[in-house]
């Protein structure tokens, strides 16, 4: 028998640690999503032919959404800080051993990379804006007329996106005092989860933007004004199957990494086994198996597989499920991770 009694009762620490609420999971989710958008749009930019003037949705909507979602994510991160007035201190130093310091500097690189990416296709993304400000067309022509510049922007988006995606996982993985997070697999897991959510989001937007009649049912009802605004703006509907196929690849890899993550913990110390038990059959098991694995990965994987084989119509369901799964993954890992702790197994 081991019984520990303590007189400590620090708020947010005792009886169980809960220092991070909804803000950090939302930030990690949006950070991963933006990373995915950057990588997908970067790859598409690299694959684009010089004469191509009808780009896929990845290059038009992707970067603009990325800028908006990253700003939302940073707002969530800011809201989490308990000493907000000193946030500028992040940019007066670089701490090489701190993932959060790396992340804060990477975030500074994300804006110009995404901004340049967005400017390249802004006239196609928002024609009304380009009509009002013709300089945007000039800038777009300037960028697209220089293949080396396009190559640079594409590469920058890919590399910074990969850095951002991995960072969101390493941020937790470096905090080894929480045994559930004690795995370097969190970096690739969050990267591929970010890629799958980004592909799902773009696929969903593409479906909503199809002309009326071709759109999935309930799109107008679900997305209201956004659906009406985007009606008929889909630059290239053929992107749908490509995105669904890419999403399935990312989901499969994500599932594999989750498997390795679980195996790694189960084969490790008693502390790590107990930590992962929180997910497998502890208080977070139902949400993990149903929300992350069932709704977030297996169901959309199956539906998209059937869609690609033309067995069923493309619908919004897989996209919405993947997004729900990605958000749930962040919530469950942040919350269960805080619940996990070292056990005193080696006292004399």
């Amino acid at each position: 028998m081991l019984e520990l009694t303590t007189t400590r009762h620090n708020p947010e620490i005792d009886p169980g640690m809960h220092i991070w609420g909804w803000e950090i999971p939302v930030y990690l989710f949006l950070g991963g999503l933006v990373a995915g958008l950057m990588i997908i749009s970067g790859v598409r930019l690299l694959l684009m032919r010089p004469t191509e003037r009808h780009p896929m949705i990845c290059c038009t909507v992707g970067p603009l959404l990325g800028l908006a979602l990253l700003s939302l994510g940073m707002l969530a991160l800011f809201l989490d800080l308990s000493h907000k007035m000193f946030v500028w201190r992040l940019y007066t130093t670089f701490q090489i051993t701190s993932p959060m310091s790396w992340g804060s500097w990477i975030l500074l690189l994300v804006y110009p990379a995404l901004g340049a990416n967005a400017l390249a296709h802004l006239p196609e993304a928002i024609p009304a804006l380009a009509k009002r400000f013709p300089v945007l067309v000039t800038i777009s022509d300037f960028i697209l007329g220089r293949p080396r510049l396009v190559l640079g922007i594409g590469l920058a988006n890919m590399l910074v996106g990969i850095g951002l995606g991995i960072y969101t996982g390493i941020l937790l993985g470096a905090l080894t005092a929480r045994p559930l997070w004690g795995s370097s697999l969190l970096g690739p897991l969050f990267l591929f989860s970010g890629l799958s959510t980004a592909a799902a989001l773009l696929h969903g937007i593409l479906l909503v933007a199809l002309p009326k009649g071709e759109r999935p049912a309930f799109a107008d009802f679900l997305l209201g004004t956004l659906a009406k605004w985007s009606q008929g703006r889909a630059p290239d509907p053929s992107a749908g199957p490509v995105l669904a196929k890419a999403d399935n690849s990312f989901l499969t890899i994500e599932l594999g990494i989750i498997g390795l993550f679980l195996i790694g913990h189960l084969g490790s110390t008693e502390t790590h086994r107990r930590a992962v038990d929180l997910l497998l059959h502890g208080p977070y098991a139902a949400v993990f198996w149903v929300g992350v694995i069932g709704i977030g990965i297996v169901t959309p994987l199956t539906l998209q597989f059937l869609e690609m084989r033309n067995r069923i119509r493309h619908t919004l369901v897989p996209s919405v499920f993947v997004l729900i799964g990605g958000l749930t993954l962040r919530f469950i890992l942040v919350y269960a991770g805080q619940d996990s702790h070292w056990i005193q197994a080696s006292l004399p």
Binding site: N10, E12, M17, I19, L81, F86, A174, L175, G337, W342
Partner: peptide, 17 residues
């Protein structure tokens, strides 16, 4: 800045906000 990473990193839960 109150990011609380150090609190999560401490195996002894010795820190607080």
């Amino acid at each position: 800045i109150g990011c609380k990473a150090c609190i999560a990193a401490c195996p002894y839960d010795a820190r607080f906000v």
